Amino acid sequence: MNTASPSAMPNASPIPPDDLQRHLTVAHADDENLPHIGIAGNTYTILVSGQDTAGRHSLIDMHVPPGGGPPPHRHDFEEMFTILEGEVEFTFRGANSIGRAGETVNIPANAPHSFKNTSARPARLLCLCSPAGQEEFFQLAGDPVANRTAPSPKLSNAEKLERQRKVMALLPKYRTEMLTP
């Protein structure tokens, strides 16, 4: 009988060795040093980026004011939302449903979807994207803001048009399509 420890045995585990170049990530959404991004009237705080997870996933804290939320779109990565506060209306493949605090909603890759805060109070969601990359898109397409509840900057009509052009140019790189409502 072999009594050697599993770590001493060559090829004893199908799991690769620990990558000591990677580090523990601890994030607090109210940390002003985190990236807080104002985009389309919402504020997204990048808690865990693809750099933290070797590209496996990202985690985004979303502050969605009344009336806020992205337009209809689809992308080739998984997206899962846990509603922490408030409620949002999800549209998934054309059907509407309400997500409330304490619920988790998973959107499969490639499925048309959107969400909107139809209530009178801000909503707060955690969004897990797998694989990572969506957080990079938000950082390139949005504007840095001071904290996780700061509003997006008010843009002039010319700035809005330029922002739309920028977003449309970024969409293919981030494997996303905007859909008409």
Score class of each variant (00 low, 15 high):
4 A>F: 05
5 S>G: 03
9 M>T: 06
10 P>M: 00
12 A>V: 00
13 S>K: 00
14 P>D: 00
15 I>G: 00
15 I>P: 01
17 P>H: 08
22 R>L: 12
22 R>E: 08
30 D>K: 12
33 N>G: 14
36 H>T: 09
39 I>S: 10
40 A>L: 13
45 T>R: 05
46 I>K: 06
46 I>T: 13
47 L>C: 03
49 S>R: 10
50 G>S: 05
51 Q>H: 15
52 D>P: 02
53 T>I: 12
53 T>G: 07
54 A>E: 10
56 R>E: 15
57 H>D: 06
59 L>R: 04
59 L>P: 04
60 I>T: 12
62 M>W: 05
63 H>K: 09
64 V>Y: 09
68 G>S: 08
69 G>F: 02
70 P>V: 08
70 P>I: 05
71 P>Y: 01
73 H>D: 04
77 F>E: 02
79 E>F: 01
85 E>W: 04
86 G>D: 01
87 E>I: 03
89 E>D: 11
90 F>E: 02
90 F>D: 07
91 T>V: 14
98 I>G: 02
101 A>W: 12
102 G>F: 05
102 G>S: 03
103 E>G: 00
104 T>N: 10
107 I>A: 08
108 P>D: 04
110 N>Y: 14
112 P>W: 14
113 H>Y: 12
114 S>K: 13
115 F>M: 13
118 T>G: 08
119 S>P: 12
120 A>E: 15
124 R>P: 08
125 L>T: 06
125 L>V: 07
128 L>P: 04
135 E>G: 14
137 F>E: 10
141 A>L: 01
142 G>Y: 05
151 P>Y: 11
151 P>R: 09
153 P>L: 01
154 K>D: 11
159 E>G: 04
161 L>N: 10
161 L>M: 13
162 E>H: 07
162 E>Q: 14
164 Q>K: 11
165 R>C: 07
166 K>Y: 07
169 A>D: 13
171 L>V: 06
172 P>S: 03
173 K>T: 06
173 K>V: 02
176 T>H: 06
176 T>I: 09
177 E>N: 11
177 E>L: 07
178 M>Y: 12
178 M>E: 09
180 T>F: 01
